[in-house]
């Protein structure tokens, strides 16, 4: 796995780009900007669903979601750059594993939301509360994205991971 990722990185020029003087910090900046985009769109939608700032109809805030998807794509792209350039630093790092876990939960939560609750929530107007299950889903979503940011910080701060990993 590590070799396959490194080969991919070297054959596509990603490795040279990321090891250039500004490649890594530039990719990190784009990665964090993508997260801000995600929090500023999906996060605001979640906050409104949880019952904050009820002056905004939910359908209006939903118009911001495509920018959250854009932020997510920026994160996946830059995340691939990090992972393929230094796979040994990431694949066995419990912070990365936890980050992927929370992303998976957020993804499942989103599929459940669009499959079961989105239609009922779409009509929620000004000053109205959403369904309890929508509030719970919004809480899970927001908590997962905050956990993703925390795990992202853990990756670079607590290295090597054996000082704190619970399952290593």
């Amino acid at each position: 796995m590590i070799e396959a990722l490194l080969n991919f990185s070297q054959s596509t020029g990603i490795y040279s780009l990321m090891n250039s003087p500004w490649g890594w910090p530039l990719a990190e900046s784009i990665h964090f900007f993508g997260l801000c985009l995600l929090i500023g769109t999906v996060g605001l939608f979640d906050l409104r669903m949880m019952g904050f700032v009820r002056e905004i109809p939910l359908a209006q805030l939903h118009a911001l979601i495509p920018f959250g998807v854009l932020g997510y794509l920026l994160n996946v792209t830059t995340g691939t750059l990090f992972l393929s350039t230094a796979p040994d630093q990431y694949l066995y790092n419990p912070a990365v594993q936890s980050k992927f876990f929370f992303m998976l939960i957020a993804g499942i939560n989103m599929l459940l939301f669009y499959g079961t609750t989105a239609a009922a929530v779409e009509s929620v107007g000004v000053k109205n509360h959403t369904l309890l299950r929508a509030k719970i889903m919004a809480g899970i979503s927001l908590a997962c994205w905050c956990a993703v940011i925390i795990c992202g910080r853990l990756i670079t701060y607590y290295r090597p991971p054996y000082h704190w990993c619970l399952w290593c």
């Binding site: 929090i39 500023g40 940011i149």
Partner: peptide
């Protein structure tokens, strides 16, 4: 402090972008 800074930046920058 580092985590709090990142989380708060995420919200502040995110709201301004929106």
């Amino acid at each position: 402090a580092l985590t709090l800074h990142s989380l708060a930046m995420g919200f502040v920058v995110g709201i301004n972008i929106a």
